[in-house]
Write a protein that binds this DNA or RNA. Structure first.
Ligand SMILES: [Mn+2]
Ligand SMILES: [Mn+2]
Ligand SMILES: [Mn+2]
Ligand SMILES: [Mn+2]
Lengths: 218, 218
DNA sequence: ACTTATTTTTAGACTAATCTAAAAATAAGT
DNA sequence: ACTTATTTTTAGATTAGTCTAAAAATAAGT
């Protein structure tokens, strides 16, 4: 598999439910930042290699083989992200671009030894689960903070938006994985939330509340 | 710089004395495992980018800029090799192919943090010096074991051939960086050497003796 | 110096991945 | 159902890197 093929497979995986859902050519093109004509060409190529199911004009989905390939790339991406944060003093907003490169390094031994070196982490710095070498991973029940109820305690377990801007916003407000929240007020006017955590109060917009994952309750 | 351009620059560096010496198109082609016509094309491209000095039919050498670029790639290659051996249980014969991939990862922070994480190593697992971020490195005085004198003690400080076959040969004979040798006999017939080290004797061929670097004396 | 051999460059073609523009298929609107 | 809009595919070009075959330059041999 070429680097580009790997990126398409990963893109299709993220677009549908683990790539099982059929996604449109346009959606793929947008995700890969190319044009629809380029996406069509690549989809054909991946279809020839039995990595995707493709019927003209009907969209693509990953085959079992394609799903495994995607999970393998994602496993590498997330393990490298853990490495960068845990061992090389990267912050969670700095890791993604480097992991995009490192995920394409080909060496079974490398990734398995890295996994062991990091003590077989189950989640990456953004709270996303890390597949094991067979593609299996825990998916914990989580909801977006925007849907949390008043007077209950929730734990921050992940972020939806992983942009630098958003992650830095969380940093400056001392919100991290593991932070315990209580929603003390929901403002009907703009759906903003008043949160209580670490003995401080903070009002966050709905936009923010939709991008924080919290555990189902505590 | 593309991955291929980086590999050519590195190749030219290794062929001449740090790339200062002019090397032939054929030599470059052979080192890159391509044809002379492909080498010519790439050399022209590198020349346009001011990375090499090139006059038609007269061979290539690296410019100051090209030398720095080469040393940067070699720095990355060797630091990754140290990482693989020190942290991920790779043996010295397993690291090269993976390092060939890792050396192309682009991130200043990554490589400088890796350097710090490894405690600023000065040599890689094969005894080759690691340039610092400015391209400076220690070159210790060394000779090939084949040129060592009788009755003197030498320390193994490097290997010339880094093939799996040779490195495994050294492993099975318990020869490693730091091993202290005494040459107790030189056989004039085939230039083989009888060595004494670790309280054992071993006869090595001239071929072997030409591929082990030892410190000037001790 | 002149012929032959070798090295190097050029010319033209191929593959992977991309693009623009045009054609074909599907979806939507009345 | 028929027209219009949107999506998707095809056709033809482009760029990076490679190749083979032919031409040009350099090196060697007498
Ligand atoms: Mn990421
Ligand atoms: Mn992540
Ligand atoms: Mn190496
Ligand atoms: Mn090395």
């Amino acid at each position: 598999m070429t680097l580009t093929e790997e990126n398409y497979i990963k893109g299709i995986y993220h677009l549908g439910k683990q790539g099982k859902e059929s996604v449109s050519t346009n959606a793929v093109a947008k995700a890969m930042k190319t044009k629809a004509s380029s996406a069509t060409d690549m989809i054909k190529k991946l279809s020839d290699k039995q990595l995707v199911n493709y019927v003209k004009y009907q969209g693509v989905s990953l085959t079992a083989q394609g799903q495994l390939a995607a999970k393998n790339i994602i496993r590498k991406h997330r393990l490298w992200e853990v490495f960068l944060v845990e061992k090389l003093n990267f912050t969670w907003d700095e890791v993604h671009d480097v992991a995009e490169q490192l995920e394409h390094i080909k060496s079974e031994k490398l990734i398995n030894e890295l996994d062991a070196f990091l003590n077989f982490p189950k989640y990456d710095p953004h709270g996303d689960p890390i597949p094991d070498k067979n593609g299996n991973f825990n998916s914990i029940d989580k909801i977006i903070l925007a849907n949390a109820e008043l007077k209950k305690i929730y734990k921050c377990v992940g972020v939806k938006d992983t942009s630098t801007d958003f992650l830095r916003y969380l940093d400056t407000n001392k919100i991290a994985l593991g932070t315990l929240f209580e929603v003390i007020h929901k403002e009907p006017f703009d759906n903003s939330l008043k949160l209580m955590y670490n003995n401080t109060e903070l009002v966050v917009s709905q936009h923010v509340a939709k991008n924080i994952f919290v555990s189902i309750e505590l």
